[in-house]
């Protein structure tokens, strides 16, 4: 026992010493760690957290900015009650729903098709990837200006092609309440599918070759391999793209502001644009904040719904 003690003691002592040193070192390293993330943390607090808190606070008030903080008039839940009974807001939510459902699944589907096409030994693959990714990084103003020209009812190339193939009365696109939203959806798909393709490509390149070799031995065709191997294995990526796509496109504002300003009429007034109008045009910042929180609740519910659904539908490789 004594010997044992003698043998153990240095180790215990050493352990104690190491622990103490580690504690000191952890204290120092965590301090340094916070220092390293401080710029980001400060930026997050100043430009995200505080505005979020302020938006929550001001959603219980009427506030026009012009009157300053002293002009805040507390109204309790009135803004939320008004939001739930505001037919224009719910119309805007409906338009948002059409925009999201119309653009996100198709963006993901086209992204997957592109990725499958680019995954094989295609000549100039790197260049093609770059070309498809460009819309994702190009300035929104440039994209809008280009599409405005493309969609021009009389001189636009799109209608020129439609007339050439025999469509006598092609749509007037952005200048029609019926076609402006589909036009924006087409743009969103074009702008987003390159990004989806890059993410899918990354996923495709991690798929195990042995599964495909086994399928080949079993005589499986291309479609069968896609259905039984590829698609199930990339469901985490698909889920990621769907969720981030739904969240992102439900907040779409920039392109709409640049191209249609919510019109013609209110045909492209999505919820985020309606919130913008109430805040920056009508100076009803409290009401706009309340509408934003209602929107947030909807997006959260949608995301949670998808989250629960993915438990059954998404295959995670353990």
């Amino acid at each position: 026992m004594i010997n044992g003690k003698q043998k153990i003691a240095p180790a215990v002592l050493a352990g104690t010493e190491t622990k103490s040193r580690r504690t000191r070192s952890r204290g120092k390293s965590s301090w340094q760690g916070y220092l390293f993330i401080a710029p980001n943390l400060i930026g997050f607090a100043a430009f995200t957290l505080l505005p979020l808190i302020f938006a929550l606070v001001v959603s219980f008030a009427n506030w026009d900015v012009v009157s300053g903080l002293s002009g805040i008039e507390w109204v309790g839940l009135d803004n939320f009650v008004e939001g739930f009974t505001d037919s224009a807001f719910w119309k805007a939510m409906g338009i948002t729903g059409i925009y999201v459902v119309g653009s996100v699944p198709l963006t993901v589907a086209f992204g997957l098709l592109l990725a499958l096409g680019l995954n094989g030994p295609t000549p100039g693959r790197a260049l093609l990837r770059l070309i498809f990714f460009i819309p994702y990084i190009v300035n929104a103003v440039a994209i809008s200006a280009t599409w405005i020209l493309l969609y021009h009812p009389r001189y636009g190339p799109i209608n020129a092609v439609l007339r050439w193939i025999g469509v006598e009365d092609p749509p007037v696109w952005l200048a029609s309440s019926d076609w402006a939203l589909p036009a924006l959806i087409i743009m969103a798909i074009w702008g987003g599918c390159g990004y989806a393709a890059i993410i899918f490509l990354a996923a495709l390149q991690t798929l195990p070759e042995d599964l495909y070799e086994a399928a080949d031995l079993d005589g499986a065709g291309v479609i069968e391999k896609f259905r039984s191997i590829t698609f199930p294995l990339i469901t985490p990526t698909t889920f990621f793209l769907l969720v981030t796509g739904f969240i992102g496109s439900s907040q779409s504002w920039g392109m709409i502001n640049l191209m249609t300003r919510g019109g013609p009429g209110t045909s492209t007034t999505v919820a985020s644009y309606y919130v913008y109008q109430n805040g920056f045009q009508f100076y009803r910042f409290g009401y706009a904040a309340a509408l934003s929180w209602i929107m947030f609740a909807f997006v959260l519910l949608l995301t949670l719904g998808l989250w629960f659904y993915q438990r059954r539908a998404v295959f995670y490789d353990q």
């Binding site: 405005i148 969609y151 021009h152 009812p153 009389r154 007037v172 952005l174 200048a175 191209m259 019109g263």
Partner: peptide, 10 residues
């Protein structure tokens, strides 16, 4: 001038 052009060209 057609208003469709006014809208289409902002």
């Amino acid at each position: 001038f057609p208003w469709t052009d006014v809208i289409a060209q902002n």
